[in-house]
Each structure stands twice: as C-alpha cells, then as structure tokens.
Write a protein that binds this DNA or RNA. Sequence first.
DNA 1: ATGGCCACCCGAGGTGGA
Length: 255
Amino acid sequence: MRVLTFNVNSIRARKEIVRDLFYYKSIDIACLQEIKTTEENFPQIHPEYKCYIHGQKQYNGVATCVRSRIEVDKVQKGFPGEEGESRFIYTQIGKWHLINIYAPLGDLYGERFHYKIRFYRRLREFVSQNFNLHKDLVVLCGDLNIAHQAIDVWDPQQWEGKVVFLPEERIEFDKLLGLGFVDILRYSTNRQIFTFYDYRGGAVYKGEGLRLDYFLVSKPVVKLTKGIEVLLNVRKRKKPTPSDHVPLIVEFRNV
DNA sequence: ATGGCCACCCGAGGTGGA
C-alpha cells in the first residue's frame, strides 16, 4: 500500500502534477493539503480515485483520495481544533486509520501562534481519545508546519526565533511524538532532508529548505513500513509550476 | 545560458504562505 502526502498549494493549479504522481508512482492513498478550494470546485484528478474533501474557499483545505477499489469505512471531516478552518480529515480503511493534517503556520507569539498551540493540543486529544498507538494501525501525515529539530532547517542560526522553529512549537511536536508516534523519515535516516523550499531567492537550487511535512506512525506500523521516498525532483521541475512543498511517499505492507 | 515567488480573490493589487 503506497501512501502519498503532498501540500499541493492549490489543487486546481496542481491537478496534472498530482495526476502524474497517481499514475507513475502507483499511489493507493493520497493525503493532500492546502487544496485552497471548496468541494464543489475540486477538480477531477483521476477517474479511478475517489476524493474525500474538506475544503474551504481560498484558504487551507485537505483531501484524502483513495483508489476506487479500496473500501473506505469511515470519514470525519474536521475536528474541534480547526476553529472554522479546514485542516483535518480522518479516514478509516479497514484496520488502517489515516489522519491528514494541514497545521496552522502561526505567527510570532500573537493570536495565530496561540491558535497553532491549541490546534496541536486538540490533535493530541483526538489521537489519545480514539487510538492506542501501541496496538492500532495509525498514520498521521501532512504539513505539520513545525521544523522539529535543528537538522530540519537549513540554517539553525538564521531560523532561531522564527515561526516554525520556535521552542514552544517544537515542544508541541515532542508531545505529539510522546503519544507513541514514530517519525518515519527520521527513523529511517539521519541525513538532512527537506520537504519545503520557498519560491523566492532560488531556495531549492541553493538547498535552503525546511522539513515541515511528515509521516508519523504508530508502533505496529513501523514494522509494516517498507520505505519512504522524497520526491525532490517534483519540486525542482519548472513547468508546470511546482508546489513549494515536496511530495513524500511511504510504502506499507498491507495486512 | 542557467534562476531570482505564487495563488487566491476577481479583474487591481492586497493578502497569506513559511
């Protein structure tokens, strides 16, 4: 089972790129973030996939697209921590529980920062109230908008005191992992790998990136993980315009 | 030589992203 997570920065602007990923990377389940549109205006990506969409006009929005032959048992669009913004969609597929997240960016200790902290607290409540991460097959993926450790930013000195790398938000990330999640990329390698490059300043050509997108998995899922793929070339392509985020694919042994 | 922000709103330029 191959699962994609990808902050598309508008699904309407990126539908061909997503379609190609579905086809060439044989994706079974796609967790998309920042679709930036409503369900009515969500484009047809591929006829053999069904998309469960939690959208809104102009901003945010998440969608989980699943191969038509895969049966989806349950869908929950939204949770209390969103506070009116579309940032959460949960799907249950057999024994698998998939949480697709677009976390708030926040600001420098203003209202949006407190919103981000509340969002993380609510997310942990959702997980701890619904799952046992030592027994259940849980995959939490998406754009978490936090660079967890110094290795996850291209220049830790430059990023000190900046949003996505503030001590308080990194502690929120620690607490999420503390529930029993394993950060699959960091588990599989100690190399520095980024999933976001700013459009400005040629960041992707200079290697000036951040790791903001993650696969966090429960303990039993770790044993079922075959590998993780980071599609930097998709970010580096020029035409059509890429997203500023990098797609990630994890392959799981199905059960 | 190369590349130097993009997409949304809508029909201009302001705003949010990170």
